[in-house]
Design a protein around this nucleic acid. Structure first.
Lengths: 172, 172
DNA sequence: GGCAGATACTTAACATGTTAAATGAATGGA
DNA sequence: TCCATTCATTTAACATGTTAAGTATCTGCC
């Protein structure tokens, strides 16, 4: 592990970049990316066996929890952008894992809900998923995991209402 | 916002899912995803103004730091999968931001390096990028940020050598 | 020398991320 | 009532994530 706040390890090229700039492998986005990848790597094989991608699984879980929801609400809950969600719902509907019907009061809105088959699929995946989560919790430590999530939440909060604008799932 | 750890609000459907399953918006992958998105949302507009995506920027930074590298090494450093990197390098080369030449000792390997133009582009983006990072650090707190990164690193470590296999950047 | 297997990289194919534009439907006022 | 505006969702277009397959090259062993 190279640890150098401003190490001119190569004398000449470093002249071009005035600011040394944090060793980029330690940047916050990279740390978050690597950590998330390490976690997801545990889940993907199991999901894959059941023919589900990570995002499809997120949607099913969200639907199972809230029973029925409009697309926009679902996007916010599952933290997906509209276009992604739109595509995935199309596929999930074709596989009969979800059901859709347009709201009576507003023809623009469509109510999405998980189907009986969807529930069955979830039931077949959940045990493995829970086991993996338990393993992760045990390895990392339940307390530390709680702390980490707390900090992640705070980070999100401290950046809320800064640049950018709408994230996945639109505004409110 | 419905908040119910195990609310049988619907008597029948909940019977199918034996385990209530963590409120999925609090799952570790989601926390990491949301946190990362909150951070990246700050950077994307600036990068976009300079015609760079997040990944292209990662590659340029990595190249600026290590001078020249084989594709595989670069993939590991920038935490990208081979195919993604391959495509991006093709584009960056077309834009003359990087240079490529096959190694003399091994015709399979190609050495990638940042071009003079690439260095200039980096120099034009870096100030804004640094300013954003500084703002984030200030908002969240430098100490907490360090703690967070420490925990993220530990999480990654504690999951190293578990299921899955090679992540972005291959094994070693 | 020659060939089986390993390596480095690229291509291919499909799914999602991301932004912009399009479509269809509701709403508020002239 | 009609229309400009807004809203919910989808489609489009391009870039990346992800896995599998392909290509060219190298290596070790015969």
């Amino acid at each position: 592990m190279v640890k150098r706040p401003a190490d001119p390890a190569n004398g000449d090229a470093s002249a071009a970049r005035q600011v040394p700039m944090r060793d980029f492998s330690r940047s916050l986005p990279m740390s978050l990316l690597r950590a998330r990848e390490a976690v997801m790597r545990q889940f993907r094989p199991s999901l894959r066996e059941h023919g589900l991608t990570e995002q499809q699984w997120r949607i099913l879980r969200a639907l199972a929890a809230i029973e029925a929801a409009e697309v926009t609400e679902l996007a916010r809950t599952a933290f997906l952008l509209g276009p992604s969600l739109s595509r995935i719902l199309r596929d999930l509907e074709a596989r009969n894992l979800i059901e859709r019907r347009t709201a009576k009061t507003d023809q623009r809105r469509s109510m999405v809900s998980i189907s009986r088959e969807g529930v069955k699929l979830m039931a077949s995946v959940a045990p493995s998923s829970e086991a993996i989560y338990a393993e992760i919790t045990q390895r990392f430590g339940a307390r530390k995991l709680a702390e980490l999530q707390e900090m992640l939440g705070e980070l999100e909060q401290s950046l809320a209402g800064l640049g950018g604008g709408d994230g996945p799932g639109a505004e409110e």
